[in-house]
Nucleic acid binder design. Structure first.
Length: 550
RNA sequence: GCGCCCGUAGCUCAACGGAUAGAGCAACAGGUUUCUACCCUGUCGGUUGGGGGUUCGAGUCCCUCCGGGCGCACCA
C-alpha cells in the first residue's frame, strides 16, 4: 500500500536523522489524508512533533525531511507548508496500483492482524425476556453487532453474547400479567400492560388449555415459563431478521444451576475481598474505586442481582476471554464502577479485562410529539416495527452511524418518509451504480481483469481523490476496532460514495458508442472494481447489504 | 449534595491535539444529446453554551460557571 510505503519512507528518514545526531530519538510518524486537496495526497506533522526534542525550528526540520523525501521512489513531490507540515504527493503510478491491490485482496481488503491473538467477549442488549425489544435495544443491536464484526476484521477472536435476565421478581410479574390476561382479568397494576401480553395469553390458552386446571402457584409458574419461552424465541427471531448474531445466549438461571456463582464467590474469597456484616455477605468493592461496598447475599439469604453480575463476569473470565466488553444504556452507567471493581476484586486488571461502553439514550419523536418508551405502559416502538417501517439496512445503518455516547433524536416520520435520502441509500446507490458499470463492461465483452493495467494513466483529480480515499479503508477499520467505534466505518463510506459519484461525474469509464477501447477505460474499470469492493466490505462490517441493483 | 454523559449551522449530527470546524436535511441558483440524476456544481448559513488555563497549535486536554439527560438500594 502506498500509504504504508510512504510512512515507512518517512520513518526511515527520521531514523537517519537520529543516526546523524539531528534527532535525539526515534519519533513515530503519522501520515494523514489532508482535508484540503491543496495539501497533497498525504501530510505529516512529524517536524512539528519532533522540533522540540530536536531543539530546532519546525520549518527547518521539515525542510530537511522534505528534501530527502523528494528522492524517494513513488514520491512526486514533498513540500513544507504552514508551521511545518510536510505535504506529499505520490506519483500516479504509485497511487494507481492501489486499485489492483484492493481487487486482488477482495473480501479480505480491510482486514488486518492488529488484534490477532486477543479474545473478546462482546455483550449487548441483555434484555429481560418479558417483552419485545424496543428501539433502545435496537441501537445496541446495531452497534454491538458492528463492533463484533469490526473487531473480528482486525483479527480478534470474538464471541457475542446475550445475557438473559430470566430470574427474579420481574419474571413473576410478567407471568402473573399473562396469566391474568388468559383469564380475561385486568393485568395487575405493577404488571406488564402491552397488547403483546394479550397475544401471549391467547396463544398459551390455545396451546395449553390445561393450565387453567392447575392450582395457583403451579399455574403461575406454568404461565411464566410458557410466556418466557415464547417471548425469548420472539427476541431471537427478530434479532435474526435484524442480522444481529449471538454466539451465546446466557441464562441468568444457568449461573446458579452450573455452580458458576459458587465458583465466583470462591475466587473472590481467595482474593480476600469477601466479608460478612449484618448477616449479609459483602464484596469490598470500595478497594477498587466503588462508592460503597456491595451486598452479594442478603440478610434473608437471597442472592442480589449484583451477585449474578459478579458471577457472570467471572464466568466469562473462566471461559478465557481477555477483554469483556459491555454495552450498557446510560441509565446503567452507575454500574460501571462496581463492575470494574468486580474485576479488581477478582485479581484482574479493570483497565484491561473489562470495558464498559455507555450508550446514550435514543429519544424518539413522531413529528413534534415525543414518544415515551415504557414497556410496562405498553407504549413501545419495537425493533420489529422499526424494521417494518424502514427495513433492516436503513435501521442498522442509521443507528450505527453515530457514536454511542451521542444522545440521539430520531423522528420516525422522518425516517419513514425520507427513506430515499437516508445516507444508507446514498452509499448503497454508489455500490449499485458501480456494479452497473461493471455489468455494462461485461456486456461489451471488456475483459479488464486480463488486460494490461496502466496505473500511471490515473492522473485526473477525481481519480486521485478516490484512490486516496479507498486506500484508507484498512486504517479506518483498524481505528474503528481500536476505539470500538463502528460509526467511523459509516462516515467513511459516505465519503467514499461522494468521491465515487464525483469521479463518475468527471471521468467517463466505458468507451462511448463511437469510441474504441483505450487503456484509460481499463484503468478506470479497476478503480470501479476496487471502489465497489471497498464499499461492500465496509457495509458488511455494519451488517448492511450492498445491492447490485437499485 | 455526589458521580457519569452531552452542549458544534434553522434541524439531525461529524471531526483518534493539526492547517480555512464539515456532511445530510431544509432554502435558493445551475448542470446530463454520454456508463443508474437515488447523481454532480455553486450560494446561504458558526463567537463550537460563557470565561480562564495548558501548547507551536484546542471543538478536542485541565479548571470554573451556565444549561440539558441519566444515575446514586440488602430493587430488578
Amino acid at each position: 500500500m502506498a500509504l504504508e510505503d510512504t510512512r515507512t519512507q518517512v520513518q526511515e528518514i527520521v531514523g537517519q536523522l537520529v543516526d546523524q545526531g539531528v534527532l535525539p530519538e526515534q519519533v513515530e510518524v503519522v501520515l494523514e489524508r489532508p482535508k484540503s486537496r491543496d495539501h497533497g495526497d498525504y501530510s505529516t506533522n512529524i517536524a512539528l512533533v519532533a522540533a522540540k526534542v530536536a531543539g530546532m525550528n519546525p520549518r527547518d526540520l521539515a525542510t530537511i525531511i522534505a528534501e530527502r523525501l523528494r528522492g524517494s521512489p513513488g514520491i512526486a513531490s514533498a513540500e513544507v507548508a504552514g508551521p511545518g507540515f510536510i505535504n506529499i504527493r505520490l506519483s500516479a503510478q504509485s497511487q494507481g496500483n492501489i486499485a489492483r491491490e484492493i481487487v486482488t485482496a477482495g473480501a479480505a481488503y480491510g482486514r488486518s492482524n492488529a488484534l490477532t491473538g486477543r479474545s473478546f467477549n462482546v455483550e449487548f442488549i441483555s434484555a429481560n425476556p418479558t417483552g419485545p425489544l424496543h428501539l433502545g435495544h435496537t441501537r445496541w443491536a446495531a452497534v454491538g453487532d458492528a463492533i463484533a464484526r469490526v473487531l473480528a476484521a482486525a483479527g480478534a477472536d470474538v464471541t457475542t453474547e446475550f445475557y438473559i435476565n430470566d430470574r427474579g421478581i420481574q419474571m413473576d410479574k410478567f407471568g402473573a400479567s399473562v396469566m391474568a390476561a388468559s383469564h380475561g382479568n385486568p393485568v395487575p397494576e405493577d404488571g406488564y400492560h402491552g397488547s403483546y401480553i394479550l397475544d401471549l395469553a391467547a396463544r398459551i390458552n390455545r396451546e395449553h388449555p390445561e393450565f387453567h386446571a392447575l392450582g395457583e402457584p403451579e399455574q403461575l409458574e406454568a404461565f411464566r415459563e410458557a410466556a418466557y419461552a415464547l417471548q425469548l424465541q420472539e427476541q431471537k427471531d427478530v434479532l435474526q431478521i435484524f442480522r444481529a448474531y449471538f454466539d451465546v445466549w446466557y441464562s441468568e438461571r444457568k449461573l446458579y444451576e452450573t455452580g458458576a456463582v459458587d465458583r465466583a464467590f470462591q475466587r473472590l474469597r481467595e482474593q480476600g475481598h469477601l466479608y460478612e456484616s449484618d448477616g449479609a455477605l459483602w464484596l469490598r468493592t470500595t478497594t477498587f474505586g466503588d462508592d460503597k461496598d456491595r451486598v452479594l447475599i442478603k440478610e434473608n439469604g437471597e442472592y442480589t442481582y449484583f451477585a449474578a453480575d459478579t458471577a457472570y463476569y467471572l464466568d466469562k473470565r473462566f471461559r478465557g476471554f481477555d477483554t469483556n466488553i459491555y454495552l450498557l444504556g446510560a441509565d446503567h452507567h452507575g454500574y460501571v464502577n462496581r463492575l470494574r471493581a468486580v474485576a479488581g476484586c477478582a485479581g484482574d486488571n479493570p483497565d484491561v479485562n473489562i470495558e464498559v461502553l455507555i450508550g446514550q439514550m435514543v429519544k424518539i419523536t413522531r413529528g413534534e410529539e415525543e414518544v415515551k418508551l415504557s414497556k410496562r405502559a405498553g407504549t413501545l416502538v419495537t425493533l420489529e416495527e422499526l424494521v417494518e417501517e424502514v427495513g433492516v439496512d436503513a435501521a442498522r445503518y442509521t443507528l450505527a452511524r453515530y457514536p454511542v455516547d451521542t444522545p440521539l433524536t430520531l423522528d420516525l416520520i422522518d425516517i419513514a418518509r425520507k427513506a430515499n435520502d437516508n445516507p444508507v441509500f446514498y452509499v448503497q446507490y454508489a455500490h449499485a451504480r458501480i456494479i452497473s458499470v461493471l455489468r455494462n463492461a461485461q456486456d461489451l465483452s471488456i475483459d479488464w481483469r486480463s488486460a494490461e493495467f496502466q496505473p500511471q494513466l490515473l492522473t485526473h483529480d477525481q481519480e486521485n481523490d478516490l484512490l486516496g480515499i479507498i486506500e484508507q479503508f484498512p486504517g479506518v477499520v483498524a481505528t474503528s476496532a481500536e476505539l470500538r467505534e463502528p460509526h467511523r466505518i459509516a462516515r467513511y463510506l459516505e465519503g467514499v460514495a461522494t468521491s465515487y459519484h464525483r469521479f463518475y461525474d468527471g471521468c467517463r469509464v466505458l468507451p462511448r458508442a463511437q469510441e474504441s477501447l483505450e487503456p484509460i477505460h481499463l484503468a478506470r474499470l479497476w478503480v470501479c472494481a476496487a471502489t465497489a469492493q471497498t464499499i461492500a466490505n465496509g457495509l458488511d462490517l455494519l451488517g448492511v447489504s450492498a445491492p447490485e441493483r437499485m
